[in-house]
Amino acid sequence: MKSTLIVILFFCAGIISAQSFKVEKVIGNVKAQIGASENWSQIKPGEILIANSTISTGEKSSVSLDGNNIHFVLKGSSALPLTNLKKMSLDQLILALAMQDMINAPRKKEEANSKNTAVYGAEINGIKEPFVVSSNFGVQRLNGAVQLAESGFKESAIIDAKETFRKYPETSKMPNFRIYFANLLADLNLNEEAYDDFKQIGSLKLDSDQKSDVAGKLDMLSKKLMKN
């Protein structure tokens, strides 16, 4: 029994030391899933949320959070794992992207060469922010990710979106979101990653504007990559 206790303490220690956020203001239907819990519970202002919680907002609802020198408002029809509500450096982003490759490669020996994530200085045109009202949790997550990006957490937004595209495959077929996050990569000069994304997006069902947009981006990125 004593040894079980040791193991549990060992886990608790990790949890306690994690970041947490204080709920400032709640409008409408806002729920949270704490840690690995299967249940969602309504949250109230003043509540402290631990970082491994996920919050979800209903239509026309919003929640403002405060903690770790971050003030953030999650609008309606959105969801966000609080672990992603953090400032990441570009280096951390590159590591996190590489990590997804690692997780992704079962039954193969790890290969040492990760993708070239060198940063190139160049400006990028901003695009319109996508936002979709949907009951689909994946879409809510993407909405949350977009707001992260809008709030300046581009790096963690990319990670959040990438995870969402994997966990909710139908979201990866939504060109607006894909293009938005691909452009974020391009903004961060992660040209190779951006190029790969646009390449995938090119195979999706696109309207004519999107097509020309994607073609233009691919052209621009390939030129950048060619310079290398």
Binding site: Q33, G35, A36, S37, E38, N39, W40, N52, T54, P81, I103, N104, A105, P106, R107, F137, R141, R166, K167, Y168, P169, E170
Partner: peptide, 26 residues
Amino acid sequence: LSPDQARLITDNDSKYFIRKNESGVD
């Protein structure tokens, strides 16, 4: 399970993650 089927076993998407199998299927 495919990512779409994850909700058959959990409502919490932090309790699983996605890996590709040998044939490249998530």
